[in-house]
Design a protein around this nucleic acid. Sequence first.
RNA 1: GCGGAAGUAGCUCAGUUUGGUAGAGCUUCAGCCUUCCAAGUUGAAUGUCGCGGGUUCGAAUCCCGUCUUCCGCUCCA
Length: 479
Amino acid sequence: MKNFLKFLISHSKSYGFIFPSNEIYGGINAIYDYGQYGIELKNNIKEFWWKSMTQLNENIVGIDSSILTHSNVLKSSGHIDEFKELLVYNKNSKKKYQVHLLIENHIKKFFKNDNEQINKILIRLNEYFKKKDTLNIINLINELNIHDPISGNKKDKIWTNIHFMNMMFEIKNSKNLFLRPETAQGIFCNFINVQKSSRMKIPFGIAQIGKSFRNEIIARQFLFRLREFEQMEMQFFINPKEEKKWYKYWKNIRLKWHNSLNLGKNKYRLIDHKNLAHYASLGVDIEFNYPFGFRELEGIHSRRDFDLKKHELFTNKKFIINNNKKVKYTPYVIETSLGLDRLFMAILSSSLKEEKLDNGKKRTILKIPPCLSPVKAAILPLVKKDGIPDIANKIFHNEKINHNIIYDYKDSIGKLYRRQDAIGTPLCFTVDYKTIENNTVTIRYRDNMNQERIHINEISNKIELETGLKNILKKLLNN
RNA sequence: GCGGAAGUAGCUCAGUUUGGUAGAGCUUCAGCCUUCCAAGUUGAAUGUCGCGGGUUCGAAUCCCGUCUUCCGCUCCA
């Protein structure tokens, strides 16, 4: 599977989906750019998500809040205090370590196979972590007589106090600004604005697509864990009494949404959260089977009134819903939070196939869901003479206003088809000599390479029928 | 951070053991030929061999240093 990931990364680059960012200057690890087809695919995913949230649900609206965020917002939300890792520095070597890794690695080496001893210490360690008892943690480090594993010098045993590394990027030369670590806070901050201006009643939701930034300790696995990433989040505001109902509702809806893409039902699994984030009370992950195994794709959490209550407290504003004076409450929130880059990679990795054909040759093909394909169709001339390219070109220009399509004439027809397969174009329309006679073209399907003839006038409808977003949206509504 | 792998053409890689004019396939580009699946054919372009030093008459190759990327482990979307 390691080789498949390599193949995926290479294919993504060769065909204009994903490029390593800042590549000509050596690149930056785990930062990527979207290429010409990558951005089309990404935009289509966004559109699908956006419409299924906002257009199909009259009680969900979207916003686009700023990435730069006031530090007080993140102070209130708990991110400044809770969203961090514990670090300790060696005073001699000046090297820094993640506290729990330093201790764990040490005792695993020191006690080797004595699991009883190891577990004893781990239990103590976990307790200290829970209580944020940094004093006892540093005592433990001293008690275990841990020396700096990098320098290897046994005299390097003097450690600083425990430090906290915040996972957020701070804008250093600007007062009190952070790059947001999640899009959700922008939604909470606009709760009143949206609610008042839209006159929406509970339950209602606010959706947002946008970049978020986290200073991950280790960013890896292609597009999976990035320091700059894009989220598609929807915060659904509810009556606290209905927490379980809506949590269950959105869990089901979101799973159905993923399944509508037909990447394979066995590609998904639901995992209940054991370690909840500081703001959540109920949580489940929809995991996807990536080339490197099942990993988180989307999280559905109940954030209860954690965020709104905090913002109420720090701003003295009221986020209280007042229904005819009978019931007053601060709404609970059910959050659905989807990693756009992760979904992008899920689609790409499960769509990339190498097929063996009957003639013994190989076909590299991206079986992307047609409604998300970067290019919907290609108009191709069978041969490069007798005015056939001109006809194809004319069809292209008439049709390009309706759909994102390509006209290509270079090389033999076989090569043209394969080139479209490689970027996942679902349909190819080929102009040949019969077109001159009766205005028909061959339509060739990406997935099975079958062909049939249709009239030129039907091309537009055919593309819409096979690749339109409407079909899949309709399917969601009927569920 | 630790551990593993690797940096040579747009992509995949050979060449490094044993120093001697920088290579292949695919891609790309320009033709010719072709009535449907990476076809045939003619030609062309493409490189500071990651970077810096050293050894040598001569370094992609040997030595020293350095940078970067990818993968695994802890965090999460």
